[in-house]
Design a protein around this nucleic acid. Structure first.
Length: 799
DNA sequence: ACTTCAGACAAT
DNA sequence: TTGTCTGAAGTC
């Protein structure tokens, strides 16, 4: 019975089957060894048989070239079945592997999110699959030369040849007939370096060539330089002198292979508010330090840590993670954003050997980290979403920080929720899991933790400023007074504004029209500093028109809906003595003076909520508080309360800052909960109400939802395709109550395409996935279909 | 994702 | 007629 490899490629296709590669296992790449030195020794770490190859990398023929993927499974197939399959090219020796738990997580994600498995692989398990690759081949010594024909004359010798020298059809035919041995290796990362080639001679003599002599001497003394320009800078000569050295042949460029990096263990450094001393000895930590591992448990035990402030949650979480490492195992802390990985890894390193996985690591550092962890070294790994795909053979505890944060929802790939994948990983690895968040949201509780820790919340010093009664815009009178006090006392303030730019729109004073984006159904935002209109959806930029496009009046003015530019201008007017800094996507001022304790005001978007704590923060103000929960999303109220509960974490001082919000509707339950005398009881009642409401409406987590988005350049065609899809779903037997829509998307046109939504719901994930099988992802006719399981902005308009 | 192919349209 | 764009199909 022939063996068949089931291969996952980082390409949006399902897993594909190939025959195992022909010939002996490949040689592991040797540093510096020139390609072509053939020998039959089996590769270090390469599988002897295909059966050992699960989780390893294999190169397969792909569109005239090759692709490298993971072997997800090896099975026996009938001879007839094997006839239709192409052979793989070669095993890729060494390098990373895809562990069993990660394979289970990837497969589960693809099934849950109704995408081909390759989408999941490309989104977060593609490290080690990208290449570039060196591909060499030689004639199987047992294959007669005359079988190769004219094209194969070069294969008469026994040596290795670059595969690029042969045409695709011949290669394919030779491979199918088992005539080749092939070898695929990762191209060694290399840098181009400028090096000295020969000593100075008469050609460099004379006063005019003083610079060239100095540059050459510098190269000889100090070693290779990055470029001629860098050499000129370092040696203090003109760029022309350095270039002349190259032109005359005294220096030249050389490819230098990069040395492997050493493992970048995170060095401990106190990071407020997480500078916890010896967490294992603290009484407050005893409740989680001794929790048992779930390594041998059939069902992974779960822990839910909520309440308190960030420091208290960290003091409860760290000992739990440390416990795994102290027992010689590995722990993973998944964080939603890169900045938190940095802060929390430095804090973790105070207690335990810690590694960090982030987008900023160089390739060599990544392989060093992945290799160290794959060897089973006990450690705490702190990282964002892609860290989930690392091979952690000793994994025994998985924690998710800010587990209810919407930042865990991935916007690319399968659009999965990182928290959900972490749960899957823990289950597959037999590890215990923990969700940590300011608020025990309905979804976190639905995960079914068997233990819950609710830390007491400090009551915030909070107040509402009712915009219906107070004068002043965008800063009302009481807020102006507060800012003046901050200035008088030389302290710090943070203003959170719901949008960047100057104003939400540029509108006509005569007819009321606003200038719209040509591609999207949105007003263009006015950016006063650069005097440009900009679409925050598609990015298109335009100059402000001289007159109103609708009525021709020359009275265009910024419309209400103040952005960070407008607010910072207003703040500067109120407190001219203080420095006013901005923090949003357009402008990131240097906050170092404020982080060092100097007085000042930061005006920023919600991005500012993730800043490190400020040492002398006296005031946090939300200029448009209602915007927190105004967007129509099932998670909106919980989301806004989460934000309010974590505002105090922005301060590192012992004095709690005053928190204020300018609001139009102070009666909203989010504000009443925030201001309640008994905060803990009010929050508990709030989450109960939200959970009951979601149950009654059939919202997640009571039921599972998927949004199918249908877009087309033509509005009618999009609507017709959406109706056809909804019809097909009900015809396939889905209950009409569980197919909602189609309806125009809340943003009816984006990037020049009209969008319609159909919502599909089911009682559980498996049923939902089974229902989504009926969605045709490629209906043709210029229609694009996208499925988002567990969307993070289910609009209430459908009910 | 990426290539290859076919058809529509516009400039030569 | 030839180049350029758009969309559809296929990858085992």
């Amino acid at each position: 019975m022939p063996e068949v490899l089931h291969v996952w490629l980082p390409v949006p296709v399902p897993g594909l089957d190939y025959l195992p590669p022909h010939g002996p296992a490949p040689r592991a790449p040797e540093a510096g060894a020139p390609a072509g030195a053939g020998d039959d020794a089996p590769a270090r770490g390469a599988p002897g048989t295909a059966g050992e190859g699960v989780g390893r990398r294999v190169a397969v023929p792909w569109q005239g070239g090759l692709r490298v993927g993971w072997v997800a499974d090896v099975r026996q197939a009938s001879a007839a079945e094997a006839l239709d399959l192409r052979p793989a090219i070669a095993w890729v020796a060494g390098g990373p592997t895809l562990g069993a738990a990660v394979r289970a997580m990837v497969a589960a994600q693809a099934a849950r999110c109704a995408v081909p498995v390759g989408v999941s692989v490309a989104a977060f398990a593609a490290a080690g699959l990208r290449g570039p690759w060196h591909h060499h081949l030689r004639r199987d010594p047992d294959a007669p030369v005359d079988l190769f024909g004219a094209e194969g004359r070069r294969l008469a010798d026994a040596g290795w040849h670059d595969a690029a020298l042969f045409d695709v059809e011949s290669l394919d035919a030779w491979r199918r007939h088992g005539l080749l041995h092939e070898r695929v290796e990762e191209a060694q990362a290399s840098d181009r370096r400028l090096v000295a080639l020969r000593p100075a001679d008469d050609a460099l003599a004379g006063a005019a060539r003083e610079g060239q002599r100095r540059a050459l001497a510098w190269l000889v003394d100090q070693g290779p330089s990055e470029s001629a320009a860098a050499l000129a800078r370092d040696a203090g000569v003109s760029p022309g002198a350095a270039r002349a050295l190259v032109a005359k042949g005294f220096a030249g460029y050389l490819e230098v292979t990069r040395p492997p990096a050493s493992v970048p263990w995170v060095t401990a450094s106190p990071a407020a508010p997480f500078d916890v001393e010896t967490p294992l000895d603290r009484g407050a930590s005893a409740s989680t330090a001794g929790l048992r591992d779930g390594a041998d448990a059939a069902t992974a035990p779960g822990l839910l840590i909520t309440g308190g402030d960030a420091r208290a949650r960290w003091e409860a979480t760290l000992p739990w993670l440390v416990g795994a490492v102290a027992a010689g195992r590995q722990a993973l802390l998944l964080v939603p954003e890169h900045g938190q990985a940095e802060t929390l890894s430095r804090a973790g390193a105070q207690a335990v050997p810690t590694l960090r996985w982030g987008a900023d690591l160089a390739d060599e550092q990544r392989s060093a980290v992945a290799g160290e962890l794959a060897a089973g070294t006990p450690a705490l790994l702190v990282g964002t979403y892609p860290a989930l795909a690392l091979d952690l053979p000793g994994l025994s505890r998985v924690a998710v920080w800010d587990a209810a944060s919407s930042s865990h929802k991935q916007l690319a790939g399968a659009r999965s929720v990182g928290r959900r994948d972490a749960l899957e990983l823990a289950r597959a690895a037999g590890a215990a899991w923990a969700f940590v968040d300011p608020l025990a949201t309905a979804e976190l509780r639905a995960a079914g933790a068997d233990r819950e820790i609710v830390l007491p919340r400090p009551r915030p010093r909070a107040a509402l400023l009712d915009l219906r009664h107070e004068r002043g815009w965008p800063l009302c009178a009481p807020l102006v007074r507060l800012l003046r006090q901050v200035a008088e006392r030389r302290r710090q303030a943070l203003l959170v504004v719901p949008r960047r730019g100057y104003a939400a729109a540029l509108g006509c004073r005569s007819c009321g029209e606003v200038v719209m984006c040509p591609h999207c159904d949105l007003p263009l935002r006015w950016h006063a500093r650069i005097e440009r209109l900009r679409c925050h959806r598609c990015g298109v930029e335009a100059a402000a028109p001289d007159a109103c496009p609708a009525c021709g009046a020359p009275d265009l003015a910024p419309r209400p809906g103040a952005g960070t530019e407008w607010v910072s201008e207003a703040v500067q007017g109120v407190v001219p003595t203080l420095s006013v800094l901005r923090w949003d996507r357009d402008q990131r001022d240097d906050l170092a003076p404020l982080l060092a304790g100097e007085p000042g005001v930061i005006v920023g978007t919600t991005a500012a909520l993730r800043l490190p704590p400020l040492p002398d923060l006296a005031l946090v103000a939300l200029t448009a508080g209602d915007a927190l929960h105004d967007h129509e999303d099932v998670r909106a109220e919980e989301g806004s309360l989460r934000v309010l509960l974590s505002l105090t974490d922005l301060a590192s001082s012992a004095r709690r800052p005053l928190l204020v919000a300018q609001v139009h509707r102070p009666e909203h339950e989010v504000w009443r909960t925030w201001l309640a005398d008994d905060l803990d009881a009010a929050v508990a009642a709030f989450t109960e109400r939200v959970a009951a409401r979601r149950r009654a409406l059939g919202y997640p987590p009571a039921r599972q939802w998927a949004r199918v988005q249908i877009t087309h350049r033509d509005r009618g065609a999009a609507a017709a395709a959406a109706h056809a899809l909804a019809g097909r779903l009900t015809a396939a037997g889905l209950p009409p109550d569980d197919v909602l829509g189609p309806a125009p998307a809340p943003l009816a046109r984006a990037r020049g395409r009209y969008a319609f939504h159909v919502l599909v719901r089911a009682d559980d994930e498996a049923t939902l996935a089974a229902r989504l099988v009926h969605v045709d992802a490629r209906p043709g006719g210029g229609v694009q279909v996208r499925v988002d399981v567990d969307p993070y902005d289910i609009e209430t308009w459908l009910d």
